[in-house]
């Protein structure tokens, strides 16, 4: 190892940073080379200086205080904002600006309103669902319009029958108002679905038979109790 290389290694040598072979080489060289040995002494002094002469610098005594004061002043960390429900976040992502959100709210409420309107309309309307297709086969029947009957549904039925083209010119005998409910699958009556069953019968010219009635089932919403039977 030549002098130049040794000088490069001297610091490391004294700090035990060198691998063993190189440490040995340097030691050997220093034994034999007075110039490098002198240099080594200087390096040793510098190392001592580095150990002893550098004063320990200390921050001011109120450092901790000031630091903690600043910590207290940091904006308090609220809980993770992302604990909002996923659909809230998604919604806010899609509609970031306030204006959009109002528009969305408006649209939603319009839809709800429209549905409500439609829904209630549907419920108040009574559409006769014809059970049997035989209505058209009926001929020339008199429409019995009993004044005794006050059941408004009956009235309405009469109106609707009158309006329905296929039935208009035919007379029907309406009998047997019954307050019935539809039968569920197990045969039991479900109170939720209320129907009035109007039996519309054909009066034969001979006034003899009561034919088998065609039953027209109308779904109703009202819970009007069944009116009395109408006798004809």
């Amino acid at each position: 190892m030549n002098c130049r290389r040794v000088r490069q290694y001297l610091f490391g040598y004294f700090k035990q940073e060198l691998p063993p072979e190189e440490t040995e080489e340097v030691r050997v060289h220093l034994d034999s080379c007075p110039e490098c040995a002198k240099e080594a002494k200087e390096i040793k002094k510098i190392n001592f200086m580095l150990k002893d002469d550098l004063e320990t610098l200390v921050p001011s005594t109120d450092f901790n205080e000031k630091l903690l004061a600043k910590i207290q002043m940091l904006p308090s960390e609220t809980k993770e904002k992302d604990t909002r429900r996923w659909w809230v976040r998604l919604l806010l992502e899609v509609f970031p600006s306030v204006r959009w959100r109002w528009a969305l709210a408006g649209a939603v409420s319009v839809i709800i309103f429209a549905y409500a309107v439609m829904f209630t309309q549907k419920q108040t309307s009574i559409r006769p669902e014809f059970y049997s297709q035989d209505a058209e086969k009926m001929e020339g029947q008199d429409l019995v319009n009993s004044p005794k009957v006050t059941d408004s549904l009956y009235q309405e039925l009469l109106e609707r029958v009158a309006q329905t083209s296929t039935l208009r010119d035919r007379a029907f005998i309406i009998d047997n108002f019954s307050f019935s409910a539809s039968r569920g699958e197990d045969g039991r009556i479900q109170p939720e679905d209320l129907y009035k069953r109007f039996v519309i019968e054909r009066r034969s010219p001979l006034n003899t038979q009561r034919g088998r009635g065609n039953h027209y089932v109308l779904p109703v919403v009202s819970t009007q109790p069944a009116s009395q039977k109408v006798d004809y």
Binding site: K51, D53, L54, E55, T56
Partner: peptide, 8 residues
């Protein structure tokens, strides 16, 4: 150099 300060 005087008395050594506390090593860092």
């Amino acid at each position: 150099s005087k008395s050594s300060p506390i090593p860092i």
